[in-house]
């Protein structure tokens, strides 16, 4: 019920921007959307917080062949310490000898701590009608524990530096039938595709901070909590690239690069977006 109301409100605002204002009143409609966002972006009306609650239950649920919870999983700041962990991801984990984002790390903990066969979890990586996603719920719960904190990924380990450098190269790598890269749409200020504004990620600053500070998010148009894994999967779809493997290194490299551009941005998640 609540979901339907929010969706129709969003649809009404979208119609308003596309129809009566038109491009000439772009600023006015942007302001309207901003006002709408503020109106619904509190925990009491953001359905993304339902995912936070589900994630909290999943975190402490005993599963896998070892029948234990995830509560001893180290997300970078110590076993089971969640406060502030998301603000410092992706990062290097010595036990896995790998730089990982939150989703890669959670899969690692499921496999290594719980002895859980993650095939089913990966099959449900993106939720759909009648299909919950453990990963989306866990990310919502854990990311929420960094609210009010500033993005600050560690870059001292050579593998962390490599991740960011490769991420930057990938940001500019063109391909697919339309020769598109991330930079095609996200390397200039004040551009838009159709009526959609495009943040510039080619330099550190506010557009990157506001974007990365707002993921994971509840996508009203999809009626689902989405993480950066889904956002980049959808970017590659629109870029006319092949399907990217979930929780793989190109996604982590791009996430690391974006996080570096977003350093000092404040997290407020799950947010709510179109």
């Amino acid at each position: 019920m609540r979901k339907t109301v929010i969706r129709s409100a969003a649809a009404a605002i979208l119609v308003l921007c596309a129809g009566s204002f038109g491009s000439h009143a772009q600023d006015a409609s942007e302001k309207e959307i901003e006002r709408y966002r503020e109106m619904i972006s509190d925990p009491m009306s953001n359905p993304g917080y339902l995912a936070v609650d589900r994630g909290e239950a999943l975190w402490s649920e005993a599963r896998g062949t070892k029948n234990v919870s995830l509560e001893t999983c180290n997300l970078g700041l110590g076993a089971g310490k969640l406060e502030g962990a998301f603000a410092q991801l992706p990062r290097y984990f010595a036990d896995a000898d790998k730089v990982m984002d939150l989703e890669q790390r959670l899969l690692w903990c499921m496999q290594n701590i719980q002895g859980l066969d993650t095939k089913d979890v990966i099959a449900r990586r993106f939720s759909g009608p009648g299909r919950a996603s453990d990963m989306e719920d866990l990310v919502a719960y854990i990311a929420n524990k960094s609210n009010g904190m500033k993005i600050d990924i560690p870059l001292s380990h050579p593998k962390e530096q490599e991740m960011v450098a490769v991420g930057e190269a990938l940001f500019y790598r063109r391909g697919g039938v339309n020769d598109f890269s991330c930079a095609t749409c996200h390397a200039d200020d004040g551009k838009r595709i159709r009526l959609q504004g495009l943040p510039n990620f080619s330099k550190p600053g506010k557009p990157a901070q506001e974007t990365m500070g707002g993921w994971p998010t509840y996508r009203v148009s999809q009626g689902a909590l989405r993480t950066m894994q889904h956002r980049l999967w959808d970017c590659f779809r629109q870029q006319r690239w092949p399907v990217p493997e979930y929780g793989s290194d190109v996604i982590t490299a791009l996430t690391s690069f974006l996080q570096k551009q977003a350093v000092a941005g404040e997290l407020n998640v799950p947010s709510i977006k179109r």
Binding site: W241, P242, V243, E245, S248
Partner: peptide, 18 residues
């Protein structure tokens, strides 16, 4: 990195990002 993320895509799709 590209291989680890797109290596399972059909060959004609992989050719497009070369």
């Amino acid at each position: 990195y590209m291989k680890s993320t797109f290596g399972k895509a059909p060959p004609e799709w992989q050719a497009r990002i070369e």
